[in-house]
Design a protein around this nucleic acid. Structure first.
Lengths: 245, 245
DNA sequence: CGAACTCTTGACTAGTGTCAAATTTTGTGG
DNA sequence: CCACAAAATTTGACACTAGTCAAGAGTTCG
């Protein structure tokens, strides 16, 4: 759904987001063989135990990572927004340790592992950008561990709402602290270690306190300072880099 | 406390654990300038917000990663055992997003970032090994998220005990499902999103059920199958590679 | 050898989970 | 584009896991 020039541009930007690319790197990225793919919501991209053959860049829509316990409980262990690389781990790990699923209809660019490996090994800037992307993802996992392990329900929900806002704004996809959050309350619960019922109560409470506004699944942060304070939110862990300089 | 030959050998092994090294790689690792350092327990190695200048390989003792909330609550978001690289994230991220602390007296090998960057860029096998190490760490974060988010206290404790056993045995540091776990019950609580008091109750319960034996902080898994079943423990997420072949 | 941590235990509390049912929203086939 | 079924949201009543507080016993370490 994007023309080739647009796809190339976004691919370059996805790497350039993390580190300055030299002309060689940009040229190499522009010559990378890629496939565009559209996938409906609620579909598997990778299943646990599978041996995936490609990485992807998410252009549009949301993707999440989930793990299941033996008795069928689900944890959503990660969320990807447009501009994120998905499945860099496939580069060097054989077997997937979790499921990757679409939250909404998505548009992704597929890159084969071999192409990406060649690119990374011939081009230090790309290797560096991929490292940074992977390390930031790990940093987000750590913050989520703090969130789920040591914050109460209100703080947790507030923190996730802040994080999503910050991540969307960092890539220019949300303005005015307002965005469409296409997750059900059950999914929010699975991402925060809570039940859907409790998420509902907490969202209502946050609304009543004037911290957020909701219409359907559209979230507007009404009082950023207060929400941020409640959530104990600080962007440091997102390592938002401005590689423009 | 280790002689130079020993240090070199362990360093080579730390990389070789993840991928086969060619002779060039081995030679390069053997020529890496390294410093050995001994640090007492309960010391900071890195503080949040710092700009660290080196990476380390943990030779002896335990290290943990912690994050604090504004109101002083702590989450332990990671644990490193001998043979693990510590702070590969420093390679490409400027500012640390968490604290790194010694749990016990440790012996580490310090490597400067510049030396490691040069090594990685000149030697694909090393770059690959470091990627794998980083990706496995991320995989452990995800499993911990599932553990804290969706398992109850008994399952959580059991899971951590299984994980530590598996990680120690994978590098040959524990036999017979028995090991010294140098964590206080408060630290266990912080790693599992529980309180020290509750950890105590759960440990006693697991002991009473005949799943584990305890003497001071020494843990012996008395019934691996049962403990593993209770914990819903599966080693897949550890991506234990046998790079020997 | 004493002070400061840890561990252990009991009594009580609070935050979330569970269950269930009404209401609203979403998605889909005709 | 409507109609309807399925899914998601909302709410209340109640249950239960894990937290809090407190105090005594054991352990560690300077």
């Amino acid at each position: 759904v994007f023309d080739d020039a647009e796809v190339r541009g976004r691919l370059v930007h996805a790497f350039a987001r993390f580190t300055k690319l030299d002309d060689d790197a940009i040229a190499a990225v522009r010559h990378l063989p890629v496939t565009q793919r559209e996938i409906a919501g609620s579909n598997y991209i990778v299943r646990e135990g599978q041996l995936p053959q490609r990485c992807a860049l998410l252009l549009e829509g949301f993707i999440y990572r989930q793990k299941l316990t033996a008795n069928g409980q689900r944890a959503i262990v990660g969320l990807q927004v447009p501009g994120d690389f998905v499945d860099l781990q496939n580069l060097f790990l054989d077997e997937s340790d979790h499921d990757v699923m679409t939250l909404t209809r998505v548009i992704i660019i597929d890159i084969t592992l071999t192409d990406l490996r060649v690119l990374a090994s011939t081009c230090p800037a790309i290797n560096r950008a991929m490292w940074i992307a992977g390390l930031i993802e790990a940093s987000i996992f750590r913050e989520w561990l703090l969130n789920v392990g040591r914050r109460d329900a209100h703080e947790r929900v507030a923190h996730l709402l802040c994080e999503i806002s910050a991540r969307l704004e960092a890539t220019g996809q949300a303005r005015e602290l307002s965005y469409k959050l296409p997750m059900t309350q059950e999914q929010l619960g699975d991402a925060l270690g809570l039940t859907a019922v409790h998420i509902n109560r907490v969202l209502k409470a946050l609304e009543k306190q004037g911290l957020i506004l909701r219409q359907k699944r559209h979230i507007a942060i009404a009082d950023w300072q207060q929400l941020r304070r409640l959530a104990d939110f600080n962007t440091r862990y997102l390592h938002i880099v401005d590689a423009a300089e």
